[in-house]
Simulated scan of single mutants.
Amino acid sequence: MIPYGRQHIDQSDIDAVIAVLKSDFITQGPVVPQFEKAVSSYCGTTYATAVNSATSALHLACLALEINSNDVVWTSPITFVASTNCVLYCGAAIDFVDIDPDTYNISIPALKAKLQEAYTNGVLPKAVIAVHLAGQSCEMAELKELSLQYDFRIIEDASHALGGVYRGSQVGSCVHSDITVFSFHPVKMITTGEGGMLLTNNQSLAEKIELLRSHGVTRDAKKMKQAPDGPWYYEQIDLGFNYRMTDFQAALGLSQLKRLNQFVSARQEIANVYEALLKNSGFKTPKVNEDICSSFHLYIVRIDTSKLNHVSVFERCRTRGIGVNLHYIPVYRHPYYRNLGFDFQKFPESESYYREAISLPIYPGLKKEQIEYVVDCLLSPMGHQTLF
Rank of each mutant, 00 (worst) to 15 (best):
M1W: 12
R6V: 00
D15A: 13
V20I: 15
V20P: 00
L21N: 13
T27I: 11
V32N: 01
P33L: 03
P33V: 05
F35P: 04
K37H: 11
S40D: 02
V51H: 01
N52R: 08
S56M: 07
E66F: 00
N70Y: 02
D71C: 07
D71N: 13
W74T: 06
W74D: 02
T75S: 11
P77Y: 04
I78R: 04
T79Q: 12
N85W: 13
V87H: 02
Y89I: 01
A93K: 15
V97S: 05
I99R: 00
D100M: 03
P101E: 13
N105V: 08
A110S: 12
A113P: 00
L115M: 08
A118H: 08
Y119Q: 14
T120D: 13
G122Y: 05
K126M: 07
A127D: 02
V128D: 01
A130H: 03
L133R: 15
G135F: 08
G135R: 01
E139V: 03
M140P: 00
Y150H: 10
S159L: 04
A161G: 08
Y166L: 01
G168I: 03
Q170N: 14
V175M: 09
V175Q: 13
D178L: 09
F182M: 11
S183F: 06
G193C: 07
M197R: 01
T200W: 00
E207C: 11
K208G: 05
L211K: 01
S214Y: 01
H215F: 15
D220M: 05
K225G: 07
D229V: 00
G230E: 12
Y234I: 06
G240T: 11
Q249G: 11
A251P: 11
Q256W: 01
Q256L: 04
L257Q: 07
Q268Y: 05
V273G: 01
V273R: 04
T285V: 15
K287D: 10
D291F: 12
I292W: 08
S294K: 03
I300A: 12
V301H: 04
V301D: 10
K307L: 13
F314R: 13
F314C: 13
R316F: 10
C317W: 06
R318A: 06
G321P: 10
V324Q: 05
V324N: 08
N325M: 08
I329V: 14
H334L: 10
G341Q: 12
D343V: 14
Q345A: 15
S350T: 00
A357Y: 02
L360Y: 10
K367A: 15
K367N: 12
K367V: 10
K368H: 14
Q370G: 02
V374R: 05
L378H: 13
L387S: 07
L387R: 07
L387F: 14
